[in-house]
Each structure stands twice: as C-alpha cells, then as structure tokens.
Design a binder for these strands. Structure first.
Lengths: 195, 195
DNA sequence: GTCTATACCCAGATAGAC
DNA sequence: GTCTATCTGGGTATAGAC
C-alpha cells in the first residue's frame, strides 16, 4: 500500500478510537487491528503513540488557526465575526471529530504535547480572535458591558466545542444554522418578546 | 486509622487524581501514594479500581438527584426554576469536583458502570427536570418557541457542567451569582438595549 | 489494617526474517 | 513494508506475614 495512504489510515483510525475512549485506554494493538496491520508496522510510520496523537492535533490546530486568521483579516463587525468564528468552530469540530474530542477532553495532556512540539502559540491564536471580537463588541456598544467578557467567552467555548456531542449537521441543518442559533440565543436571548 | 475515615480519604484522593488525568491513566499505586498507604491496602476497602469510580459517581448522582427532586417539588415558575437548577448544577460541580469531571469527560465509560450498578434511571432524573422546565417555559409563553428546546437544553448543559473549568466561587462571586449570569445571558441575551 | 512480596497480564516498543 | 517473535516495564490484583 502507498505509504502516504497508510499513514493517513493510521491517523484516521486512531482519531476515531481516541474519540471513543481516552488516549490512555487506547492501545497500539487496537489501532493496528483497525488499520489491518500488525502493531509493529505502525512504528514504521510513527515513532510512538504520542507522536500519532501530536500529529492529529497538529493538523487540527493548524487548519483551525488558518481559518481564524483568514476570518480576522476580513474585519467584520463584532457580532457577525462572532457568528463566523462559531461556524468555523462547528465545522472544524465535525471535520476533525476525533481531534476535537481529545483536544477538549484531555486538554492538560494535549497541552504538554503541543508545548513539546512548539505549537502552543498557534493553539492560542483562535482564543485571541474571540477575545478581541467580544472586546470590540463591548467597546462599540453592540454588547452589554455588565457581563464579564471572559465569562461570555468561556460560555461560548463550552457550547461550541461540545456541540458535536449532540448535533449532527445535515442538508437542512448546517453548521452555519447552528452557529446562527447559538449566537442568537447568546445575543438576543431566549425571552419571548413577541407577546 | 478509623476505617470510615480511610475509606473517605481513598475516595477523595481518587477523585482529585481522576479529575486531573483520565481514569485509565490513573494507577492504583498513585492513589495509594496519595493516601499514604501501600497499594494492597486499598483492596481492603474496594474490590477494584472500577468500584472506587462507581462509588464516587454514586454519591454524586444521588446527591444531585435529591436536590433536583426537592426543587421540582417547589413548583417555581419555569425561568426561576431554571435558575435554581443552574445553581444546583454549579454547586454540586464544585462540591463534587472530581466526580463531575469524570462524569462529563468519560460519559460513555461511566454510563456502563452506572448501568451495572443499577443507577442509570436515577442519573436521568435531572435531565428530565430540565426538559420539563424548558417545555413549560415555552408553553406558558415566557420562552421563545423558535429555538429547539433540546438545543437550548444541551447548550445549558455544556455551559453548566464545564463551568468549574474556568470559574471558582468566592465570597463575592457565588455559584448563585454565576447561575444568575448564565440564565440572564441565555434568557435576556447579550445585546445592549440601553443605548 | 497494613506491609512485603509477588503472580499474572498486557502495554509500548524493538529486532530480524521475509 | 509487513510479519513474527519477543523484550521490558508497569499495571491490577492477590497472598500471607505481622
């Protein structure tokens, strides 16, 4: 089999299994079985189990950060920018389902691996994009100033990064739809003003 | 040492370590070290590692469910009831920090243990209390009916059950304060209506 | 009730034949 | 590049002395 293809296979199967169990509970042999080779063969592609994990998160973080950079460059008004950031979060969560799961669930462990791989700064860029968007929203008066911006940011994070647990996008429910719903709940609120 | 006290110690230290790493990544020997005994001694109190985990979650779920039952019995109006449910969630998250962490982070694994311990029904009661509160809010017109109630519920869950990651209560920031903030964001929204 | 010692297993990783 | 076989360490759990 083509080396690049096999490497891809190893990463994809690993991501699926890591997402189900924890990293520690997943064995090299289980990954090898899922790929259809013997465990020793994996070591021709990656030097260790951690290296597989690091590579998975590297791909994910780099793509996510790149999309956020492109968006920030468009300089949308704060609330529109927040909705676009939310869409990016949901889309990458779906595309990198396994990586997202381990990145959020085993954050401490992953952070260590990312620091070792010199990627901590890249990983923090998206956080900064959110912080700035919210701060600008408060500054220009479109957002209330009586709720701590950091609290709002953390609330949005928790909703966005765990949405894949209960939401599956389809033809009539896109990630952009859910992003719009989330932002309307956070911005407009659930109170019924119609009556 | 008093047996009950030692048992308590084992549970408390286990919860702390499980919260840091995953359950699979925590060893019996690490728990024994933290307690200050040899690993063999733990087996005088619990038959297995899983038994420790199950007991931790049992205490947590039973207390949480009891509090929700008491609240539901008070029959508050929907939005007030949601705020009270939020306070309960935040308070128990803080009091059972380790149990909350593993319950949310290793939900699949925990669910298996709870089914084996015949506690799955108890674990689902709080979910039902939330569902009913939201449904009544929509029915009596206090909440918008153009956002899927289930989506709202999942969003609230993600915020509430992960709040302990970034929030620490103190004299001037209580859990009731954060519950009020979370509910006002979800109900009133972040849009600035003052200007 | 706790310690010492250890059985037993399975993990990650390696070496060499093919 | 993959398989077979295996090393080595560390995991859960147990047994018996104290």
């Amino acid at each position: 089999m083509d080396p690049q293809e096999r490497r891809r296979q190893i990463l994809d199967r690993s991501a699926e299994i890591f997402a189900e169990k924890s990293i520690a509970a997943t064995t090299i042999r289980q990954i090898a079985d899922a790929v259809g080779v013997y465990s020793g063969a994996l070591y021709h592609y990656f030097p260790s189990k951690d290296a597989i994990v690091t590579e998975l998160i590297r791909e994910y973080i780099e793509d996510l950060t790149a999309r956020c950079r492109d968006l920030v460059a468009r300089s949308l008004p704060p609330i529109e920018r927040m909705e676009a950031l939310a869409t990016i979060a949901l889309e990458t969560s779906a595309e990198y389902h396994g990586a997202t799961a381990i990145w959020r669930r085993e954050h401490h462990y992953m952070r260590k691996l990312l620091i070792a791989a010199d990627m901590a700064d890249t990983a923090d860029e998206m956080e900064e994009a959110w912080r700035v968007a919210i701060a600008e929203g408060v500054a220009d008066g479109s957002l209330r100033d009586d709720v701590d911006p950091h609290t709002l940011q953390e609330m949005l994070y928790d909703v966005l990064w765990h949405a894949s647990r209960w939401y599956t996008a389809g033809p009539e429910h896109t990630h952009a739809d859910l992003a719009a719903t989330i932002v309307t709940v956070f911005v407009d609120g659930m109170r019924n003003r119609a009556r």
